[in-house]
Design a protein around this nucleic acid. Structure first.
Lengths: 349, 349
DNA sequence: CTGAAAGCGCTAACAA
DNA sequence: TTGTTAGCGCTTTCAG
């Protein structure tokens, strides 16, 4: 319980410095010696102390993802990308979850992580958040995910255009009364939601359609929130004929409500989501596809370069494209659950 | 860039030892001194070096989740539970993803993590895996998630009974030709799949139903795999009338196939999944509900105790119950997409 | 209750 | 190419 460099050095008959060099594959070590060292290490089952190495080098060998939630598909997908990118780099991955405002992490991220990691990927942290300010203030390598902060690297999508294309799609279909299920209230222009609201307005204005405030409801970015939001929308005196949800998950909840009310998705009411999760294809939900995995991979890549260069390259911002995916939730014919069922009952395919 | 205890000590006019004690809230420090120290630390923006503390105490203050995948709902849900349990403990969370056999992590987990964390939660690692043997060999605190290894703590569900209840449900509905979509080939009795196969056999035998090997196909635990598996099942000369998928995600894929073929889920073919993900309620998919979040929380809790006691409590095994959730994918009437659509078209609710 | 001093295990100059 | 020698920043006896 506690094999150290010294033990390896003794067994191999060399100094600890040589052990250190050999084990890290420095070219400047005699091959035969190196082999002897590796051999000794294996025989002893030596595993280096990360803490000691980190203390000595001043590098943590770790990056952290700071996120307000871990139970969302978007997080899962970006994690997949990050993890994949990190796999071969020897960097470890720490998850720091800030938590809901109702159930926050007891220690602010900058306190907890500053001297513990080499850099951060910050996901969906509200620009208003004091945590963000503190993190930026650390002046450590950092990549923002899905948002932007002046002076920091970031990966994102064009939320404004993405939202606009969703609404344009609905408008093209002839809808004029369009419900919006957004996440949370916010007035900060740096919040991605704000951009999406702008996109909605852009599209509406493009067709000269007046915006009706009562058609915008919050869905908290959750399925249950989306279900409740759709309830409110359907309870309006004049309900919308089409709804754009700012996330697929909220759209899933909306679908649940639609079904509970005995309405047919895509026929009685059109619905489009945002995110392009795999699940949406099964629900026949139209959506704006967002390449979360790739965004995650890019974020990790940028962060890693930043850590390596010491930030000499300056902040980098990448914007990846979204894509409108049309399915029967907005098609209104052909492959709607309703029409499909009718077809199955009538003429055998 | 580099405020240390010394700086704080100097500003506060005390020794580094006192700073250390004060900052960690030891009672044995004069309140007025303590306050002065905290004050100095804040003024300097002091954040302790985790590496130094870890090296000095021999505790990493971190646990790792070792998992073969991060892009599955089961992982996401267990992560939620683990994260929540850890939130207030000051322990950090590291994600180590072993990766697919086709794209494995370059460094085996025991090498990478042994001296880097205080304990592991090992998820779904095949008992045949050499990695598992090495990890067990470390004799470090460890909790197995969803599987069992002799001498190690574990949290799991009764996979055999869970699977049996799924099949019994199908049998009760009158089905006699039941397709099985399992994940991967395995003959190891410790693999959870094996238990599920046994459960299937139990239920079948209970009704004296013969098992037909051609009705069992692999779905790789993915949506696309599940879709392909269902294709094969439907292409059989005598297709099954009901299918049990060993995971909800595979069932989602199966649903896609069912729809593509113009069949009505729950009427033309019955389907039941396993996992109880939130999404399944939207798809009206019957399932065996598994409390992943709670399992994750329990796993974290057990691991933490183990780390604290130094394992003196001995290995703990907890088994949480599953629950059969019946929805219209096996109900065949009432709330089927087909009947619902028909109802909507006819009598207004 | 507080301070002095000795490490924790490793790496990085600097010599040899 | 290899060894010697200081630390990295914190914690922790052990005195006082």
């Amino acid at each position: 319980m506690g094999v150290t460099v010294k033990d390896v050095a003794r067994l191999a008959g060399v100094s600890t410095a040589t052990v250190s060099r050999a084990l890290r594959g420095f070219g400047s070590v005699d091959p035969s010696i190196s082999e002897r060292v590796v051999d000794a290490a294996n025989r002893l089952g030596y595993v280096g102390s990360h803490a000691a190495a980190a203390l000595s080098t001043g590098k943590a060998g770790t990056i952290a993802i700071i996120t307000p939630f871990v139970d969302r598909l978007a997080f899962q997908r970006m994690l997949t990308g990050v993890e994949h990118e990190l796999r071969d780099t020897g960097m470890d991955l720490l998850i720091y979850c800030t938590g809901d405002p109702s159930d926050p992490h007891p220690v602010p991220p900058h306190k907890r992580l500053a001297k513990r990691v080499d850099g951060f990927i910050v996901m969906s942290l509200s620009p208003e958040s004091p945590d963000l300010a503190e993190i930026l203030n650390l002046r450590m390598p950092l990549t923002m995910f899905g948002a932007h902060a002046p002076g920091a690297s970031s990966v994102q999508i064009d939320d404004r255009e993405g939202a606009a294309s969703a609404v344009r799609h609905l408008l093209d279909l002839g809808h004029r009364r369009i419900g919006i299920v957004y996440g949370r209230e916010s007035t900060n222009p740096l919040v991605l939601e704000h951009q999406r609201h702008l996109g909605v307005r852009d599209a509406l204005a493009g067709q000269g359609v007046e915006r009706d405030e009562e058609l915008s409801v919050a869905g908290e970015f959750t399925m249950t929130g989306g279900a409740a939001a759709m309830e409110r929308l359907l309870d309006l005196e004049v309900p919308p004929t089409a709804v754009f949800a700012f996330s697929d998950e909220m759209a899933y909840g909306a679908i649940q409500t639609i079904r509970r009310r005995g309405l047919a998705l895509g026929r009685d009411i059109a619905l489009i989501g945002y995110d392009g999760h795999e699940m949406s294809s099964i629900l026949d939900l139209s959506t704006i596809s967002v390449p979360f995995e790739e965004l995650g991979a890019r974020a990790a890549h940028i962060l890693l370069s930043d850590i390596e260069d010491g930030g000499s390259a300056g902040p980098v911002s990448e914007m990846l494209p979204t894509e409108l995916v049309v399915r029967s939730s907005t098609a209104g014919s052909g492959t709607t659950p309703a029409s499909r069922a009718a077809a199955a009952a009538g003429t055998p395919d």
